[in-house]
Every structure is written in C-alpha cells, then in structure tokens.
Design a protein around this nucleic acid. Structure first.
Lengths: 135, 135
DNA sequence: GTCAATGCAAACCATTTGCACTGGG
DNA sequence: CCCAGTGCAAATGGTTTGCATTGAC
C-alpha cells in the first residue's frame, strides 16, 4: 500500500474533528476549514475523512437520515440522535453482552465496528414544543 | 391526512417483506414482485415501503454501507451485519438500560425508533476464508 | 366524481471517482 | 524525480418527486 505523506489539509481536517463536540458532517468540516484553505474541495475532505476513519483516528456515524457524521471518540459507545434537531448525544457503551454471545458461538473473530443508535426527541426539543403549545 | 386506499401493489409489497427472512432491499422487493406486477415502478416500491414503515408494519434498517434494508420484525432488536457478504442476522435486544437512563434524565418521552448494529465478519465468511487459505 | 396510488422520468443529494496538476519525500 | 495528495468537475447510486393517468371508494 501507498506510503502516507503529510498534508496540511489532512492535519486541519483532523484538528477540526478532534476539537468538535458536535459530530460534524463532511460539509461542516468543509465549511469549517474553508477559511484556512479557501480552495479546498469537498472531495479532499471526503477522501481524508475516510482515510482517518481507516486509520482508526476518528469514527464515522451513519445516521440513517441525512449525511454521515464524524466522531473524535473512537472508543465503543452509543449515540442518541434527535429526529427533530438532529443533534447527536454520546451514550456510554455498557452492553457488549449480546455481541460476546455471538462471538462465543464462533460467529466472528474480528469485530470491525460497533454502533448503537437510539432515535428519539431530545430534552430541548421536547421543552421547545411544550412552550409553543402553551403560548 | 389523506385516507388510505387499498392497493394491490402495496399488499404484494407487504406480503413480500413479511415472508422474507433476508431483510430485503427496496430493489430486492422490486425484483421480487416484478413477476406479479410487470409494470410496477421502483418509485411505487419506495413509496409503499416507507408508508409501511410509517404505519409501523415493517421496519427500516440503515446499514451504513449499501442500500437500506427492510425487516418484518418490528419488535426492538439488534442486527449483526457481515461486512463481507452483507447478510444481516437478528440479535435479540437485551439492553435498553442506557436508554432508560436517558429517559429518566428527562431526555425523551417518545422513542421513535431503536437500532443496534454490530459490524463484523460472519461465521460463514470466516470459514470460507480459512478454506481458501489452506488450499 | 374525487382524491389516493401508480408509472415514468427527471431531480436530488451525499459521496466517489477520473484526471491533470501540485507538492512532500 | 516519483508518486501521494489536491482541486475540479463529472459520474454514481440510492432515494425522492412532479406530473399526467389510473383506480378505489
């Protein structure tokens, strides 16, 4: 495989995701580093994001609605996705039990990824709704 | 909201998914009922599948790689997706604990969906690989 | 007769890819 | 120099949508 070469763009993309608490989309990353690299292209952002995912430095979150999001937290954990505002909240992983069972069955030797996603309406959106109703 | 009207196409689509053990894609459903409805269009299949999902009669599985899959099992449960052969295996849901915690925090009153997905290599693919290596 | 559902094609949108050019080693 | 990385634009692929027509009620 090709030897990895340094690239200022990739560093900036990594930095951006690492300092993000918001699980940014490729587009958000793109917009976020546009100031530093006015000519950067979306293609480059996508290429580097998936490279960083392959390197295990960041994680990709498939949401099921809207674009993929990226996460600086690569430790196995779960997500709560608000179906209204699309915010993603981390949830500590605490349940590998059923997976372990499968492994015990000889199902898998190499778990390449793990994701648990809960969909619902977040506290903030619930409150916002209530306020609207009452007024 | 519009009153629901009977449609032979929709019945056929529901039947197909209900009798599927394979978590079919929209395209698989399309191909599967093409014999019965030679002129059916993919658009109709997509429209009815998402209608059935909204009615809660079937469930949509977002895989993160490749097209969405549909599931006749609407009870909360988890999936194991093989990254090689793309087969999906059901896993009994056994961990609502962290979700319940969130609810207790006042996070959510209406859980609109739940999905846990494990990615890995299934037993069959692992064995196939071993055989190849040895020969 | 009315309005939901269909078939078809075009549109959409996130993501990927081909290619000529730039830049790190 | 060489080959990885970039920018750009075009292509891809799953899914959605607009519209005229058909069919359920």
């Amino acid at each position: 495989m090709a030897t990895l070469k340094y690239s200022r763009q990739r560093e900036s993309i990594r930095e951006f995701v690492m300092n993000s608490r918001e699980h940014p989309t490729a587009d958000t990353v793109y917009a976020g580093i546009k100031a530093e690299f006015p000519n950067i292209s979306l293609g480059t952002v996508y290429r580097n994001l998936s490279l960083l995912v392959d390197l295990g430095e960041i994680a990709k979150i498939t949401t099921g609605d809207g674009p993929d999001r990226f996460d600086c937290n690569t430790k196995p954990h779960s997500h709560f996705i608000c179906t209204q505002c699309h915010n993603i909240t981390d949830i500590e992983a605490s349940e590998f039990d059923c997976m372990k069972e499968k492994v015990a069955e000889g199902f898998d030797g190499k778990i390449t990824g793990h994701m648990t996603t809960f969909y619902g309406i977040c506290k903030e959106c619930l409150e916002a709704k209530k306020i609207k109703k009452t007024s």
